[in-house]
Design a protein around this nucleic acid. Sequence first.
DNA 1: GAAAATTATATTGCGCACAATTAAATTTGA
DNA 2: TCAAATTTAATTGTGCGCAATATAATTTTC
Lengths: 153, 153
Amino acid sequence: MKKSLTPSLLLDEQLCFALYAASRRMTAAYRPLLDALDLTYPQYIVMLVLWEQDGVTVRELGERLQLDSGTLTPLLKRLEQAGLLGRHRRLSDEREVEITLTDAGHTLRERAEDVPRCLAEKLCMSADSFTRLRDQLKTLATQLAASTDQESK
Amino acid sequence: MKKSLTPSLLLDEQLCFALYAASRRMTAAYRPLLDALDLTYPQYIVMLVLWEQDGVTVRELGERLQLDSGTLTPLLKRLEQAGLLGRHRRLSDEREVEITLTDAGHTLRERAEDVPRCLAEKLCMSADSFTRLRDQLKTLATQLAASTDQESK
DNA sequence: GAAAATTATATTGCGCACAATTAAATTTGA
DNA sequence: TCAAATTTAATTGTGCGCAATATAATTTTC
């Protein structure tokens, strides 16, 4: 059967809605696991970055996660309040705020080690489909970023 | 090369982050198109449902979009304020609130007709990849919903 | 037919996202 | 050198998402 040439307004045909719904489902699937660590999903991905590379600035964190300071500043303050990290102006350039993990922040990593495996079990997906889907989504995001940037030519 | 058997905490290997980032990019790609219609992305998908089926209840809308009344009630009030729809208790069962499009709400559909095509152009994706990715995401969402529901056994 | 359970929506509160603005530090360049 | 431009965070305001609770209507059950 020939694919319709005129994209429709039907909800079930939209890629955007499939993406939006799947993303919220994914966050919901993480919730019980992250509740045990007292983290929200956005806080978790911030911690993922910090566990990889401690001492990054808010700007670097924002570039990595594609989030701006309006989102990150209050989120980081909550993680600071929770005792997981510290926020300090850099001496070399006082416009920058460097984020450093506390001992508690480093320790939490061990308790998080099981999260990816627990989630993988919920997916019921082969390692291949997992990788393929992930990479398709990365490509899509890159493509959308490119055409959105181009707009503000 | 053998796929690692122990899922890592590396950000770039996470399916969840690829999904989360792609979903936000997608919403960002819609933004300039929807700004012209004075709609946000969540408001747009509500309108998609209503253009398909007018006179649904908040509950039916919530089931379709997987959103609860805490999200929908204020969103619907904003669309009512904008003159696109009306909210009325059903006479048959006064617990239910029925959403009906106004003339302006129906008319907006015509101006929205071009949105899917405009967005499709930003994707640079074959109709096949589009459909395949969309259906993979639907499957993923279904699987996650199933295993999340099961948790509250 | 009245109490108990269920259903549907609304409300409240918190935590993102993101646009727009502000403020402060640094860099650039005439 | 010093004023203008740029860079970096923080702040403000709006609109989701979603959990928890409240309220009101309906259905069930005895």
